[in-house]
């Protein structure tokens, strides 16, 4: 995995340069952009890091940038900087998925902590993302019948009931189940359930019920 980058997007040059000066003082790689458009040009989903965004910019605004990024499924963490007392805007930013918001002028430690936290979150997300990708690719190998069996198995349905529901013999269910385990590369039923939960096939509530 490449070195994470802190993207500073602000139309005020002094602001950009001073942030870079501060962030680089803790040894983080920093990249500055004077507009959202310029950042989007330089960014691709694989890049790790976080974005420090001035919520008010001419052209593509911070909020619009957030929308664009989530559409690209690039869950890069965004830290929003706001002017004094611009709370409603900050709330909207958080709701749109920003990890944090800070009021200018902000405490340097707070900012750096936020950045660190965001970078961690990003790294985690990136890992999580690769797991999900694996599970999804395994699941894609299942036949429709096997997919049905998987869904019922992770919901905790006994083999007999599965057989009755599908109108096949228990023996057949067992064969399907073994194929599912094999294709999903699951060592145990608990493993299979966890995988299902990762990709959102099973919700927490369902799990609890199960």
């Amino acid at each position: 995995m490449s070195e994470p980058t802190v993207f500073v997007v602000d139309d005020d040059e002094a602001m950009r340069n001073s942030l870079r000066w501060l962030i680089e003082s803790v040894g983080l790689k920093t990249e500055t952009h004077d507009s959202a458009a310029s950042f989007l040009e330089a960014y691709y989903p694989g890049r790790t890091g976080c974005v420090i965004l001035d919520v008010r910019m001419p052209g593509l605004s911070g909020l619009e940038l957030q929308d664009k990024l989530s559409f690209q499924d690039a869950n890069i963490p965004i830290i929003v900087l706001t002017g004094h007392g611009d709370v409603p805007m900050a709330v909207r930013a958080m709701k749109s998925g920003a990890v944090d918001f800070l009021e200018k002028p902000c405490n340097d430690q707070l900012l750096l902590d936020c950045i660190q936290h965001a970078l961690d979150q990003d790294a985690e997300q990136k890992a999580d993302m690769s797991l999900k990708t694996d599970i999804k690719s395994h699941m894609a190998q299942l036949t429709p019948r096997e997919h049905d069996v998987l869904e019922m198995v992770v919901e905790g349905t006994p083999n007999k009931e599965i057989a009755a529901a599908l109108g096949v013999s228990t023996r057949t269910v067992e064969v399907h189940r073994a194929k599912v385990m094999e294709k999903m590369q699951a060592n145990s039923l608990a493993d299979l359930v966890r995988m299902s939960m990762v990709i959102g096939l099973v919700h927490e509530e369902a799990e609890a019920e199960g």
């Binding site: 005020d12 002094a14 602001m15 340069n17 001073s18 942030l19 000066w21 501060l22 680089e24 003082s25 803790v26 008010r56 002017g83 004094h84 007392g85 200018k104 002028p105 902000c106 340097d108």
Partner: peptide, 22 residues
């Protein structure tokens, strides 16, 4: 106006802190 004033002030703070850290 407050925002206008905030920009240079924030920049000053950032530069100062960056210096301190270095």
């Amino acid at each position: 106006l407050a925002h206008e004033l905030n920009q240079p002030l924030s920049a000053i703070v950032n530069y100062a802190r960056g210096c301190t850290r270095r």
